[in-house]
Each structure stands twice: as structure tokens, then as C-alpha cells.
Amino acid sequence: MSLLSLHHPLSAPGEQLRVLQNGHKPFASALAESGLFPLTATGIGVLQINVGKLCNQTCKHCHVDAGPDRREIMSRETAELCIAALRQTSIPVVDITGGAPELNPHFRWLVEQARALGRHVMDRCNLSVLLLPSQADLAEFLAEHRVEVVASLPYYLEQQTDAQRGNGVFAKSLEALRRLNALGYGRPDSGLPLTLVANPVGAFLPPPEHALEADFRREMERRYGVVFNSLHTITNMPISRFLEFLLRTGNYDRYMQKLIQSYNPAAARGVMCRYTLSVGWDGSLYDCDFNQMLDLPVGQAAPGHIRDFDPEQLGQRRIVIGQHCYGCTAGAGSSCGGATVKQG
């Protein structure tokens, strides 16, 4: 169940922010020391649309607190506003996320419209959704529209994956990956990119992206005959369910210290909020999906809703920051596109 359904205090963004503001070096100071304060956007290269919090899984680290019990979902009217905003600009990438975005009844319409505008569309897919009876033709739909599938898989073994994402999820994920592979996803030159996203199964930083990609490539093919194009690593953000895990297990202070000690100015320069605009299920605008879940909208100088979309103002807005931002600047950095400091 979600923290919200459990009436957990940490389901409130204000309580999460209160915990995060306790005692550690302010993120603004770290940015200032590396000459990056105030952090500003460098344009809008990605429109990330969060179409709702409904999900068929309840992962232990989920920063959205998504689950089958969540009902917040983007309406057709708001989805139309997103397409209208895209039509005004040449934003090249549309990144659709959730929850399980495919469970939004307007997901396929959104994909079709964005593709008709010639934009690259990414579906942040939990894989198991492909096996739901209501989604039996989803894989074919994604392939037909040349949608990049960005699939969550924390580890190449069942024990670790199920520990984070729920019992039976690894087996379902494998079946979904095989289905995608059969359609051409993950195969070189098919034009159907399959990207895996791995995040640590615990209170530690992710491995170097290139090394983990090599491990995954070898093990996924050898053990299961599954192929993919690339792998992204993402650091677990100390908010929502992962924050609850950190506090419950006594790992919070150590994890925050680790993030702060690992602050990397090069990673800070490349954070995704500088080139991403995040749209919430109700059309509100945010600098990133994490700020969205913490109820931290874009600064007041920029329009706050997709109906008032203004690419010029939003493309040079000042980014709203907080202590959770250390999650994106630790080590090789972290973003929806994986590490922000890529290594050979």
C-alpha cells in the first residue's frame, strides 16, 4: 500500500521537506561553492509528462508513492494542453512517466499525438504492466509508434529485484522483456530502443554506469537470452517511500552524508532540471519529477500551469532546489537519462 493509504506522516510533502531540512549542509551552499548558484534552466529539451500515480506495482523505493490505490490521473483536457504546448515549440523529446503511465486511458492518444508531431517519445515502463490482460496489445502499440521503452530493472537477479519491486515482479519483467525483444526492441538497428534503468536495492550509490551495463549485458544474455540497447543508473532519491525506508532502518543520516560527501560539481552542471520541464497530472509545472512529488512548483517568475505555457520564460527559469537535490549530484550524477557524468 502507498504511504498515503497508510496515513503515514511522510505521505505529506511538507513532512518530507521538514525531515530533509534538518542539519545537513544546505544544497544551495554546495552549488554556490561550485559557482552554480542560482541554478538556471538552459532551455527545454525534454517535456516530461507525469500522467498519474496509478500503478500496478508498489515498489519500496518509489518517489511517487504510486500504487493500485492511487487515483490521481491526468485528464484528456490536460493531455491536450500538453500537446498544444508541444505544438508551439520544437522540444524534441517527450518523456511519459507515472505511476504506470500506460494505465492512463489517454496514454495512447498522447503517444500518437506526440509522434504525429515528430517528437521522440519515451515510455517509462515498469515491464509487468505489459502482462496485464487490459494491456495485451501494448507492446505492439509501442513498437508500431516507435516509442523508446525505458524499463525499470534494478538488478539482473530475482532476489534483489523482487526485494525492491515485489514478489514475482522479476519473472514478469523477464517475460515482458522477451516479448519486447521478439518485436525487435533491444536489437541493434531495429529502431526500437530498449533502455534499462537500474537503481540500487538499498542505501548505497549506484555502480559506475558503464561497468554495470557491461555486467547486465553479459548476465541478461547468458542467463535469460534477453538483449537491450543501453542501461541507465539512477540514485535513489531520499524522498517518499525511500525516505521512509531510510528513517525506519536507521540509514538516513549515513545516506545523506554519503550523498553530500559525494557532491560532484560536474554532475551538478548537468542536472536534468536544467533542460527538462515536468508536467504534473493536473497540469502544474515543476523543474523535475522529484520536485513534483515534493509539491515544489516552478518559481513564481515562470508560468505555473501548462495552460499558460511560455517556452521562453520557462526555458530560462530559476530552478527550485532543496536538500533532496544532493541525490542528483552525488558521484557520477543521476537523472532520468542515467549518470550525468558519463565515463568511457
Partner: peptide, 12 residues
């Protein structure tokens, strides 16, 4: 232990 996990090893 922490370093091994952060390099992608598993407990096994």
C-alpha cells in the same frame, strides 16, 4: 561491503 554493493556486486 558498502564499496562492493556500490560497484554492482550482490551478497552472494
Amino acid at each position: 561491503t558498502q564499496a562492493c554493493l556500490e560497484k554492482g556486486s550482490n551478497p552472494e
